[in-house]
Deep mutational scan, measured.
Amino acid sequence: QWKVGDKCSAIWSEDGCIYPATIASIDFKRETCVVVYTGYGNREEQNLSDLLSPICE
């Protein structure tokens, strides 16, 4: 189960590419979260089910 502060990978809606991110907040009722893309600072809402394991850098 994901928690705030977890590192993950998420698909950015603008280009469909996968980027490393950190979970900033979680809404368990809606099963969504807000991620912050590492190195970019962009925030975006994602479905918890769409999150991927962190990418090894």
Results as ranks from 00 to 15, higher is better:
residue 1 Q to M: 13
residue 1 Q to T: 11
residue 2 W to G: 11
residue 2 W to V: 11
residue 2 W to Y: 09
residue 3 K to D: 14
residue 4 V to H: 10
residue 5 G to Q: 06
residue 5 G to I: 05
residue 5 G to T: 05
residue 6 D to Y: 05
residue 6 D to T: 00
residue 6 D to F: 06
residue 6 D to C: 12
residue 6 D to H: 00
residue 6 D to L: 08
residue 6 D to V: 01
residue 7 K to A: 12
residue 7 K to Y: 10
residue 8 C to K: 00
residue 8 C to A: 00
residue 9 S to M: 15
residue 10 A to E: 06
residue 10 A to L: 03
residue 10 A to H: 05
residue 11 I to S: 01
residue 11 I to Q: 01
residue 12 W to E: 03
residue 12 W to H: 05
residue 12 W to V: 08
residue 13 S to D: 05
residue 13 S to V: 08
residue 14 E to P: 03
residue 14 E to F: 14
residue 14 E to K: 15
residue 15 D to Y: 06
residue 15 D to N: 12
residue 16 G to H: 04
residue 17 C to G: 11
residue 17 C to N: 15
residue 17 C to W: 03
residue 18 I to F: 11
residue 18 I to C: 15
residue 19 Y to C: 01
residue 20 P to M: 12
residue 21 A to R: 01
residue 21 A to T: 06
residue 22 T to Y: 09
residue 22 T to P: 01
residue 22 T to A: 03
residue 22 T to V: 14
residue 23 I to L: 02
residue 24 A to N: 06
residue 24 A to K: 03
residue 24 A to Y: 14
residue 25 S to E: 12
residue 25 S to P: 02
residue 27 D to E: 03
residue 27 D to G: 01
residue 27 D to H: 01
residue 27 D to Y: 07
residue 28 F to T: 11
residue 29 K to D: 14
residue 30 R to Y: 11
residue 30 R to F: 10
residue 30 R to Q: 09
residue 31 E to N: 14
residue 31 E to V: 04
residue 31 E to D: 09
residue 31 E to K: 14
residue 32 T to L: 06
residue 32 T to P: 05
residue 32 T to I: 08
residue 33 C to G: 00
residue 33 C to W: 11
residue 34 V to K: 01
residue 34 V to W: 10
residue 35 V to H: 01
residue 35 V to C: 07
residue 35 V to M: 04
residue 36 V to T: 03
residue 36 V to R: 00
residue 36 V to N: 02
residue 37 Y to P: 01
residue 37 Y to F: 15
residue 37 Y to D: 02
residue 37 Y to N: 02
residue 38 T to L: 12
residue 38 T to E: 14
residue 39 G to Y: 14
residue 39 G to E: 08
residue 40 Y to E: 04
residue 40 Y to Q: 08
residue 40 Y to W: 13
residue 41 G to Y: 03
residue 41 G to E: 07
residue 41 G to I: 05
residue 41 G to V: 06
residue 41 G to A: 07
residue 41 G to Q: 06
residue 42 N to R: 14
residue 43 R to L: 09
residue 43 R to A: 13
residue 44 E to T: 03
residue 45 E to A: 06
residue 45 E to N: 01
residue 47 N to R: 14
residue 47 N to Y: 13
residue 47 N to V: 04
residue 47 N to M: 05
residue 47 N to A: 10
residue 48 L to G: 03
residue 48 L to E: 05
residue 49 S to V: 10
residue 49 S to C: 10
residue 50 D to A: 09
residue 50 D to M: 06
residue 50 D to Y: 06
residue 50 D to E: 06
residue 50 D to L: 05
residue 50 D to N: 08
residue 51 L to E: 04
residue 52 L to W: 04
residue 52 L to R: 08
residue 53 S to W: 14
residue 53 S to M: 14
residue 53 S to D: 14
residue 54 P to N: 04
residue 54 P to K: 06
residue 54 P to S: 08
residue 54 P to A: 08
residue 55 I to K: 03
residue 55 I to E: 11
residue 57 E to Q: 11
residue 57 E to Y: 13
